[in-house]
């Protein structure tokens, strides 16, 4: 199985690729269009800031390529957020795969949301190995509100989409590559889709 991890300016591509290696998969870390299109699965990791990420994706024409992909695609954290239509972070127009708006977390709790929080209302094949209430690691200031694409939730100052899904596109707000056994389980499920 060929797994492409999309390489861009400030992603945590290495952490994701280490997590895949721990599962016995050697991914290709690439921004090459043919390599991405030709892989069986694509992971679009995320650490960074929305507007600088989008301008980088545009400069590599990845903003055209990613929404066209037919194979399973998993966006992680900022990866998931820029797969939405628009982000309040830097007032950024994003990829529009998920027709959702990414909002800043309400200040009723400390922002960023940092740490281990639960996975609830699990409704996706990504969570076959997880149980309701399992903990995953979150690190974000912006979030996708609950919507018709939500397939897992968590709660932090607002109800938060922990995962969203549309056709072959999956997005998780938490970091499966940093969430211990629960996270490896999610990645394993993605590899088995």
């Amino acid at each position: 199985m060929r797994i492409a991890v999309v390489k861009y300016n400030a992603g945590n591509t290495k952490s994701v690729s280490f997590a895949l290696k721990r599962l016995g998969v050697e991914p290709i870390i690439t921004s090459d269009h043919d390599e991405i299109s030709g892989s069986d699965k694509v992971i679009f990791p995320g650490v960074g800031e929305a507007s600088s990420t989008m301008s980088h994706l545009r400069s590599e024409n990845l903003d055209k390529l990613l929404p066209e992909l037919q194979q399973p695609v998993l966006g992680i954290c900022l990866g998931m957020q820029v797969m939405c239509s628009y982000s309040e972070e830097g007032n950024t127009d994003c990829l529009g795969i998920f027709k959702q708006i990414v909002r800043r977390l309400p200040e009723s709790e400390k922002v960023p949301h940092i740490g281990w929080n639960q996975l609830d209302n699990l409704k996706s094949a990504l969570f076959y190995r997880a149980a309701e209430g399992d903990y995953a690691y979150y690190l974000h200031s912006y979030f996708v509100p609950i919507n018709n694409l939500t397939v897992a939730t968590t709660h932090y100052s607002a109800p938060v989409s922990a995962a969203i899904q549309k056709d072959n596109f999956f997005g998780v707000q938490f970091h499966p590559e940093k969430s211990g056994e629960v996270g490896s389980g999610v990645l394993q499920c993605f590899l088995e889709l």
């Binding site: 400030a10 650490v47 800031e49 600088s52 972070e89 690190l139 974000h140 200031s141």
Partner: peptide
Amino acid sequence: SLAFGSQC
């Protein structure tokens, strides 16, 4: 924080 996001 502008380049990498406040969260990191």
